[in-house]
Design a protein around this nucleic acid. Sequence first.
DNA 1: TTGCTCCTCACGTCACGTGAGGTGGC
DNA 2: TTGCTCCTCACGTCACGTGAGGTGGC
Lengths: 265, 265
Amino acid sequence: MPIGRLARLCRLTVKALRHYDAQGLLAPTWTDPRSGYRYYRAEQVSTATSIALLRSLDVPIAVIRSALAAESEQALAAVLGAERDCAARDLAAREQTLRSIERLIRGTDAMRYHVTLHEQRPSRLVGVRGTARAEHLDPDTGTLCAQAEALLATTGLTSDEGLTALFPLDLEDTISVTVGAIISSTVTLRPGTVEEMLPGGTWASTLHVGPYVELPLAYAALLEHLHERGHTALAPITETYLVDPTSASPHELLTRVAVPLDLPD
Amino acid sequence: MPIGRLARLCRLTVKALRHYDAQGLLAPTWTDPRSGYRYYRAEQVSTATSIALLRSLDVPIAVIRSALAAESEQALAAVLGAERDCAARDLAAREQTLRSIERLIRGTDAMRYHVTLHEQRPSRLVGVRGTARAEHLDPDTGTLCAQAEALLATTGLTSDEGLTALFPLDLEDTISVTVGAIISSTVTLRPGTVEEMLPGGTWASTLHVGPYVELPLAYAALLEHLHERGHTALAPITETYLVDPTSASPHELLTRVAVPLDLPD
DNA sequence: TTGCTCCTCACGTCACGTGAGGTGGC
DNA sequence: TTGCTCCTCACGTCACGTGAGGTGGC
């Protein structure tokens, strides 16, 4: 069976089949050494069709190769299972994507940030400190939040609002993040607990409604607002998670972003 | 503001920002002609952050460019709306993907096709005929099915099973497809109605459970089975949709694929 | 013999990432 | 002055698609 016939049978292009030959995914059973013509057997139709199906699912060629090479059913299930997990993560991300675009369309209004200034007394944040990688800021912060939650639960401490995270103003590759609760009472610190003082004075803050991936928009709006007015932001920049992300859907999340300002008294 | 600072502020890489400059997406407000250094303004942080967000949603650079160039809110909404529709389709496809992979994992069993032979008397198929493009075979066939459904409803004809579609054995770029119901009674044909005789004799058939995108697997299994036994398939190859695709979810669909054989009597 | 199929380069797509090798800015 | 940031090529990634220019097979 020449390449064109196989292509029509399994709904692939001739170019794709030649590519799979070059990649060692599916070689013809016989190639004429003079003409270079590729000839396939009828048994290869189902393999080619499986490849077509997997490729339509965006399974990479390398993964398909290892799936075809799998000797046991279990090995095959392992390869496909990994791919399914991958697809599941992808699906979740896509769902977020869709909602984000919808938000961008519906409310240019919801995307406007109102920046307010307020006076605040110095305060104490009690919790944990760790490092986060800039590329994985959201998940790494999430992990720290969980640790802080666990720690605070054992000490019986609670804050009026949700957890607060402190970030440096400039995001390096790996940054130091502190997460905890703002506490007014005096407590004895347990091992592993970290305490950080937040400066008093004028703070600027804005509210963000929606998933955490969109938080950079709030940062940009806040910092631009301050820049326009000639204000200088001090460290740390803080995020307070006013809605519990483990029980609310991402587009319902409410987060306050705030920074202390360097203002003459 | 140099490029590195902007990159950290909006969580983009320096490479990406240079790329956006080259693509005309986001040019620095000033480029030093001697050193080539790019300098950005604070106002560009929010634009860059929006770009970062849209790119994380896989919105192509060309689309972002037109979104940034949109002069009215409506124009912007139109661009983003198109992108949202695109993402929605993508999401639906991904969902299918996930289920298909799960099926591939769970049941290597469910993916096995049992081919049966049976004798059949010549029959008549009454319905509509149209062309379908090989790359859009499933949607084009769906359209024809809807037309056939509408036509049959006006004539009061019903078949015991669902609609049946007839395909040639070899799929060209554009192929002729007939869709309709198999009818035993004699009826007067209305204008626009097409009648086709199906040959009697021995037919081979197999059942496919699941979405239509996986049907090529059934074809491959059926044709390979016949090839192994030295049988020759005749045209047309038929698909009978035993479960209504408009009311059932794709993984519940049941389809019979059948072909007449060229057997000596 | 005609027309169709098939062949092999070589390059394009898309949004960057990855060095190499070098220079500017504080 | 040191070390960091920034620069520009040039090439790689991934799974093919798109011609160009030519030949084999029925």
